[in-house]
């Protein structure tokens, strides 16, 4: 059972990584990157690395998305690629 969980999360991670790099709206890219971080957090919790998962939940899904959004707000929202 836990292997299926692993495979689902890894496939979702690859999909979100590609989408966050392909989408042209940088605000959406930042939000999808937050989703990617949260999926990684789930994967670490499943591997038994609770401290790392906790840090990623606070840092990756919370603070770094806010930093990206703050920069996108102060610069351009559209990207050419």
């Amino acid at each position: 059972m836990i292997e299926h969980f692993n495979i689902i999360i890894l496939v979702l991670m690859i999909i979100t990584a590609i989408i966050s790099l392909q989408v042209k709206d940088l605000l959406s890219a930042s939000m999808i990157f937050g989703i990617y971080s949260f999926l990684i957090c789930l994967l670490w919790a499943e591997m038994g690395a609770v401290d790392v998962a906790f840090t990623e939940a606070a840092v990756g899904a919370g603070v770094s998305a806010v930093f990206l959004i703050a920069t996108v707000y102060n610069t351009k929202r559209r990207s050419s690629d």
């Binding site: 990584a17 966050s20 790099l21 940088l26 890219a29 930042s30 990157f33 990617y36 971080s37 990684i40 990756g60 770094s64 990206l68 920069t71 996108v72 610069t75 990207s79 050419s80 690629d81």
Partner: peptide, 15 residues
């Protein structure tokens, strides 16, 4: 080519 995209890519590499 976009620098923000490059930074998101760097974070994905790091993870």
């Amino acid at each position: 080519r976009n620098l923000i995209k490059k930074l998101i890519g760097m974070s994905i590499f790091q993870t």
